Simulated scan of single mutants.
Amino acid sequence: MLRKASIMYVNKAAFDEYQRRHDELWPDMAAELKKHGVHHYSIFLHRPTGQLFAYLEIESEERWAEMANTEVCRRWWAYMEPLMTTNPDASPVSEDLDEVFYLE
C-alpha cells in the first residue's frame, strides 16, 4: 500500500457546503475510488487558511492516475469547482506532499 498526501484549497465561504457535499458522497464516486485501489481516504480542513490536507492509501500510482479519467470523477470535479481553487479542467489545484516521517 502506498501512502499519499496533498494540499488543496477550499473557498472560506464554502466550508459548510464542502463538508455537506462530502457527507453526502455519491455512492458511485465511493465505488469508483475503491475500484481504483483507494483506501483510508481522509480530508482535513485548516479553517484559518482554507487549506485542505488530504491523506489516502492507494494500491498503485497507475490505478490512482486512471481515476481522473472516469466519468464520475469528472462530474465530481464539476460539482466541487464552485467551492474550490481549481485548474482549467475543473480538477482541484493539488500540491503533493513528501513523506518525511512514518511510524508504523
Rank of each mutant, 00 (worst) to 15 (best):
M84Q: 03
P88S: 11
N11V: 09
L2N: 10
A68T: 08
A65Q: 14
A65I: 03
D89C: 06
F44L: 14
H46M: 04
T49D: 08
E59T: 12
Y18F: 15
G37Y: 01
Y18H: 13
W76V: 08
E71Q: 15
V10Y: 01
E61F: 04
S6L: 05
F15H: 12
Y9G: 00
A14G: 01
F15V: 01
L33T: 00
M8D: 02
D89H: 10
K35H: 14
E32G: 07
K12C: 04
M80N: 06
A30N: 10
V38F: 14
A14P: 00
K35L: 07
M80C: 07
V10C: 10
I7G: 04
A31F: 03
P82D: 05
E66V: 02
D23W: 07
A65R: 12
E61I: 06
H36A: 04
F101R: 01
A30E: 11
F15C: 09
H22E: 03
K34R: 12
Y18C: 06
F101Q: 02
P92K: 01
G50L: 09
A31M: 10
F101A: 12
F44A: 11
R63Q: 10
F101V: 09
F44K: 08
D96R: 08
L56I: 02
A31E: 15
F15G: 04
N11Q: 14
R21H: 04
S91V: 02
R75H: 10
Q19Y: 15
M67R: 09
E59F: 11
M80L: 13
P82T: 04
M84P: 00
F15P: 00
M84K: 00
M84Y: 03
A54W: 00
P27Q: 09
K12V: 08
A13E: 15
N11R: 15
Q19R: 15
Y41K: 05
D28L: 10
E99S: 07
Y79T: 10
V93K: 10
V72M: 07
V93D: 04
Y9V: 00
K4A: 12
A68F: 15
R20E: 02
I58A: 06
L33P: 02
M1N: 08
R74H: 11
H36W: 01
V38T: 07
D16G: 14
Y18G: 08
R74T: 02
D89L: 10
F53M: 11
V100C: 08
E61N: 07
W26A: 11
D23Y: 05
E104V: 05
P92N: 03
E99G: 03
W77M: 13
Y18Q: 00
L2F: 14
M8W: 03
K4W: 07
C73R: 10
E24Y: 02
Y9R: 12
C73I: 13
T70C: 05
S42P: 00
M29R: 04
T70S: 14
V100P: 05
E57C: 07
P82L: 05
R3L: 13
C73P: 01
Y102G: 01
M1S: 07
A14Q: 02
E24S: 11
E66K: 14
M80P: 03
R20P: 02
E66C: 09
P82A: 12
R20S: 13
G50S: 12
R63A: 13
H46E: 15
T85N: 09
D89Q: 04
E99C: 12
M29L: 13
Y102D: 09
E81S: 13
R47K: 13
E71G: 04
C73K: 15
H36Y: 04
M29I: 06
D96I: 06
L45D: 01
Y9Q: 15
E32T: 15
M1F: 11
